[in-house]
Each structure stands twice: as C-alpha cells, then as structure tokens.
C-alpha cells in the first residue's frame, strides 16, 4: 500500500492504494467517480480517457501510484454550477450520445484536443478522436457536435426526405 494524493477536478483526494491498482480502478472504485468507464482494460478503446496534468491518456494503463501528485480532470468536472460545458451542450443538440458508455472518455479527449487546437478542422477532429471507440453513433454526430461547439458547423446534419 502506498499513500497518494490526487487533485481531481480541483478537489484533493488522499488514498492508500495497492501499488498494482490502475488509476482507472482507483478513480472508479476507491474514489467513487464512476463517470470514467472501462471498455477493454488494455488501452485500446479510449473509454477510460482522463486528463492527467494536461494530457489525455488511458487511465487503465496508468498505475495510480504513478499519478501521485498530479492534477486530473474527469467527466465529472466538465459541467460547472449545473451548466453543461459548450461541448456537452453541442453533444446534446446533435445526438452525439447513444448508449453513453464512450461519452465520458470522448469528452475528455475532445477537451484535450480543443486546448491544443481551439478550432480543429474535420480532419483534425477525426484524428483527435481516433483512439476513442464509439460503437453506436458512427462518429458523424460527434464530429458535428465538435464543429458546432467551436463555431464551425456550416451545414447542420439533418436527415433528408426522399
């Protein structure tokens, strides 16, 4: 067991953790922040993406003890004072959520992307979210939501009538 300190969404958490436990498991099971999901446990699907010291990464591939002393952002910190963030609102408008299991990780990846590229092109969005699997939406409405959130959506995606 090792004592670690994590600052998560601005709040300090102090926990004694087993050295083999991943950051994902400590977040979900020991701190109770279950917004972040586990999709594969092998760093392949992106469902567990959180931001650690400004960098989006798969929390299933980080040992909690490695994250000692870091600042962590998770989906739980995305809305403030009961207001959804701009990206969350755009996801809501565009049906960029279906089952919702990839959504928390997807939001963190996009947050990281928008910090580096405040107005990413469609190609840059695709490149940015490539590591986050979504089995439901086919990504199109997610991409449109990001374009909309960054004021770049020229044509709102709509179903056409024959």
């Amino acid at each position: 067991m090792k004592r670690i300190e994590l600052t998560i969404n601005g709040d300090l958490y102090r926990r004694d953790v087993h050295e083999h436990r991943t950051l994902l498991h400590v977040l979900r099971e020991e701190i109770g922040l279950t917004g972040t999901k586990e999709g594969c446990g092998a760093g392949e699907c992106g469902a567990c993406t959180v931001i650690v010291d400004g960098l989006a990464l798969n929390s299933c591939l980080v040992l909690a003890v490695e994250a000692d002393g870091t600042e962590i952002e998770t989906v739980e910190g995305e809305s403030k004072d009961g207001e959804l963030s701009g990206v969350q609102q755009a996801f809501d408008r565009h049906h960029a959520v279906q089952c919702g299991f990839c959504t928390p990780g997807m939001l963190m990846t996009i947050k990281d992307l928008l910090r580096r590229k405040p107005k990413p092109s469609r190609a840059e969005i695709i490149e940015g979210i490539e590591g986050n699997f979504c089995r439901c939406t086919g990504y199109e409405q997610i991409i449109e939501a990001v374009l909309d959130a960054t004021g770049q959506l020229e044509e709102k995606g709509e179903i056409k009538h024959a």
Partner: peptide, 23 residues
C-alpha cells in the same frame, strides 16, 4: 421534430448509472 435525447444530459455528465458502476 428535432428533439434532444431525454437521457443525454445524464450520460454527458457521467451520472448515468450502469451495472458496471454499481456496488
């Protein structure tokens, strides 16, 4: 009419509970 999903906000905030989250 275009209507947002009734479950979107709960999912977007990470508050929607799945069995995998339950203890």
């Amino acid at each position: 009419k275009r209507t947002p999903r009734i479950d979107a906000k709960e999912k977007l905030t990470g508050q929607a509970t799945y069995v995998s989250d339950m203890v």
